[in-house]
Simulated assay, not measured.
Amino acid sequence: MKKTIVLLLIVVVSVSMVFGNGEKEEAVAKPIVIQVGYENNPGEPVDLACIEWQKIIDEKSNGTMKIELFPSSQLGKKTDLIDQMIAGSAVCTLADGAFYAERGVPDFGIVFGPYLFNSWEDCWKLTESDWYADQSKKLETKGLKIISSNWIYGDRHTLTKKPVHTPEDLKGMKIRVANSMVFIKGFASLGATPTPLALGEVYTALQQGVVDGLENPLTTLDGGKFQEVAKYLILDGHIKNFTTFVVGSKFFNGLTKEQQTILVDSANEAGLYNNSIQTEKEQIAMKNLVAGGVTVYTPTAAEKKLFQDSSEKFYSYPEIADKWTPGLYDKVKAIINN
């Protein structure tokens, strides 16, 4: 009897060890899944590059890290996603300096100043500078970790329901902008009446006359089919928009060093892919806009200067400049012009 009991105990312990080890191995093998949400629609460069990112991170991590994609704001508004990140969720989105200014790092807002950059090389000079690294560290203390800053989003142009050739033509026109003081004052400096709206609400707002136009890169304008409800495009190029991908500091710090490296490297590699397809996709977008009945206007040098001169007001608006470190504009321009 005693032998029987001993044998039974041995069997129970052995089975427990097998199942216990199995559960442990299963837990280790379970991949880290990051949900990536963005406003862009399927087929836009950002979306295509994120699909490439899926492949890259899967390969680099041997399947232990994966990203799930949610285009067209399927995961929610940018501000809601950022709140989730700060709370520790495994969520990622693309965001820009204007949003980071709203999240406690006001100097970051200058990267969205109109006509700040003359080329993409100017952008990379700034993102690779010590100043940019310092701002990124400040953002980490606010709960957000930038994992990549090398994505070209595009030159932002203005699509409207009536022709615009100069800042004077924008007076009284309600132009959709993102809900950020930097965006709002940036377009106010160009003479328009900025109207904050989520991008997903703009098509209907144009139909109903709530707004008279919007500004965005060509690929985004085409991706949203805005040529169906607004027919005049001015290539004012008021912002050279590079974008960043961001996760929560709490989530990022919970990853191993190897996982952090894989996440950052894969995001940067996908950014290079994004940049490589931008020109082709912009050309396709332009053809689609024109085919949709859009009249495209390229401002003359004199008209472009009117926009640039008008934009200078942005850098002295109290709502913006009073929150900046003294001498910020000169410091940033010195980095760009170095």
Rank of each mutant, 00 (worst) to 15 (best):
S180V: 02
M17T: 08
S310R: 12
Q208W: 13
S189G: 05
W151S: 05
K162Y: 01
N179G: 02
A178P: 13
C123G: 04
L75T: 01
G327A: 05
F112K: 06
K240G: 04
A95Q: 13
E258T: 08
W131S: 05
A29S: 08
V211C: 04
F251H: 08
K174A: 02
Y297F: 08
Y153T: 05
S89G: 12
F19E: 09
D96W: 12
D212I: 03
V18D: 06
L218D: 07
G223I: 01
E39K: 09
T298P: 11
N241L: 12
I110Y: 01
K250N: 06
S73D: 12
V182H: 08
V111G: 04
E319A: 08
S249G: 01
G104E: 07
T160G: 10
S311R: 00
L221E: 14
I234M: 10
K231D: 11
N179K: 11
E39G: 15
N179P: 12
G97K: 03
D122K: 00
A192C: 12
M181K: 14
S148R: 10
G327F: 12
T195Q: 10
F314I: 02
T160C: 02
A334G: 03
K137S: 03
M181P: 09
T193D: 11
Q54E: 11
A301R: 09
Q84M: 15
Y115I: 11
M65L: 07
M17A: 15
K240S: 07
V33T: 03
P114V: 06
E102A: 01
E52A: 03
P163Q: 09
T295K: 14
S180M: 09
E201T: 04
K305F: 13
S72C: 08
D236F: 08
G97D: 04
M181L: 15
K257A: 09
V264N: 06
P31T: 00
Q259N: 10
S16N: 14
D330K: 07
F112I: 07
A285E: 14
F245V: 10
C50F: 11
S72P: 11
E201M: 08
C123M: 04
V246K: 06
L9M: 13
K333P: 04
Q308D: 07
Q135E: 08
E128C: 09
G224F: 14
L48Y: 08
Y100I: 03
G223S: 02
Q260L: 06
